[in-house]
Amino acid sequence: MTGGPATPTTDRRAPAPGRAAHGTGPGMSTTARTAAPRAVAAPAALAPRARLLPALAAVYRAQLSRARVARIPLLFVATFQSVGIMILMRGVVDGGTEAHAVVAGSSVLVVAFVALNLLAQYFGQLRAGGGLDHYATLPVPPAAVVLGAAGAYASFTVPGTLVTALVGCVLFQLPLAQLWVLIAVIPLAGAALSGLGAALGLLAPRPELATLLGQLGMSAALLLGVLPPERLPALLVLARDLLPSTYGVEAFARTFAPHPDWAAVLVDLGVCAGVGVVSLTLATWAYRRAAVR
């Protein structure tokens, strides 16, 4: 039943099926044999790769657009949740550093909601649904896909974070002058949390697990970020120190002081940046691993 090696043919062990066994077998047909291909002389030229920055920009733009279409209601939820928490906490805390922690924690919570929770869900579903195939069959650097998506989700948190910070400052009579620091806090906390979210989404074996981990991460950011650390038990303070969003919260909270300790703010933001680099690298590795199974 077999022709030469160049003939596309039936497997040697194919059962010779009853009625096809007489006459010429399909692999023996003259058409297949006479048209046997010649060997290829030299490999064909490869199309160019997409370069990192243009590809990153294209992914970012596409992700921002789909976030706009699909995620605006969720951004409202995130903002209302944070504003609601601040209103609740107004009866509990009595100004001072506790108020700083509540406002900063609630603002960064919006970042955690979108960048950590929603991005983990997105990558979990993309991976489970075969959506990664689309990117994996394009000559695009893995980092462009991960950074583009992470950047878009982080950018998407900007309006919610600003609104929360503004409402918080009004509620707790805090100065608005230092809110410019959000220009650094949002991208750096965003990098750390979206990198974590992307890594969780791409590493979780099942999409439900990715969703669960994203939710847990956000709950942790809520509990450990919003509640003033002075009131937490020692074990939770340790957990709080391990959570990357904490450093975004701390950096932002410090700027409400009459004379902010800018060195400490820089250190906190540096931790965010470091976690961001590590988690985004991990997420890129996870993407590469998930793309070729």
């Binding site: 596309p8 043919t9 039936t10 497997d11 194919a14 099926p17 399909p26 692999g27 297949a32």
Partner: peptide, 8 residues
């Protein structure tokens, strides 16, 4: 998983 025939 096997090619059982290949032709026009």
């Amino acid at each position: 998983g096997r090619v059982i025939a290949c032709d026009t």
